[in-house]
Amino acid sequence: MKTGFYPGCSMKGSAREYSESLMAVAKVLGRELPEIPDWNCCGATAAHNLDRDLALALPARILAAAEKAGMDEVLVPCAACYSRLSVTRHELLDAKGSEALRARISGLIEAEYRGSAKVVNILEWLAGIGGLEGLIQAPFARKVACYYGCLLVRPAGIVKFDRPEEPQSMDRLMKKIGAEPLDWAFKTECCGAGFSISRNDLVARLSGLILDDAVARGAEAVIVACPMCHLNLDMRRPNIEKRADKKFRIPVLYVTQAIGLALGIAPKKLGLQRHKVTVRFSPAVDKSPAETLPPSGTRPGEA
C-alpha cells in the first residue's frame, strides 16, 4: 500500500503549519508521505463556480499523476481539496454517464484517468494508524470543540465518511490523545469557506457563530482539519471580533498540531507560532487554560 500526499496550495503558503505539523507527526508515527509528482492546484471553488470541465480536469490530472506514480491512495489533508478530488473521482467513476465524461476529461489532461487511487482525508488516515495511544508523551488534556466543517462529511453519498450530522471521527481521535471533545452545535456548520477575501463580512458572521458556541460550551481550543476553516477562524479573527464586538481568545489548532503536542513534539516544529491567535499550549508543561490568555486578564468566553 503506497500512500501519496497531496498538499494543495494553502499548505505551501498560508497553512504551512498544517503541513509542518503533519510531517512532524508522520515522522513520529513512522509514515512516509511522498508528494504527488508535479501536482497542480485542484481548482477549488473558483473552478467549479466558473467551468465544469476545468473543475473536473484539474483534480483529474492530480489523481492521474498519483496513479502514474503507483500510489494506491492519496492523503488530502485540506478538506476543500479533499472534496474536489472526491467529487471528481465520483463524477468520473460512479455517476451516471461517467464513462463518456471520463474519456472527455482524459482528453483534456492528455493522460488516462483510471481511478485506481483512493482519496483519503486526514481523519480517515489518522484513524487508520494503530497504536497512536501508545506513543502519547503528554496527554492533550484540554476541552476541545472538534470542528469538521462542511466538506469532510458532505455530501455523504460521495465522501462516504463518518455521519453527516454530528460526526464522531475527530472526537474519537481527540479522546485517543487525552483530550475531552465537547458536544457542541456547530461541528458541521459552514465558516464561510472561500469568501475569506471577497466577502469577509459573511465570513466574520458565520465564523463568529462557530466561535461563540465553542466558547459558550467551555472549549479551550477549536480543532480543525481544513486550511480554509483555519484561515477563517484564526487569521480572520480581527474581522470576527470587530463584527461581534467582543474578543474571542480561543485558539484554533489543526488536528495534527494537537496530536503533535500529545506526541511531545516542540510547538515550534508544529508551527504554532504562525497563528494569529496565540497558542500557548506546550507539551506536558501544565494544563492551565489561563496559559492561552493574553496579559489583559479576561477569561475565555468573556466579551
Binding site: C150, R154, P155, C190
Partner: peptide
Amino acid sequence: IWLCLTCEICYC
C-alpha cells in the same frame, strides 16, 4: 447563485 458556498448542507 454566487453566494452559494457549496457547503452541501441543503443537499445533505
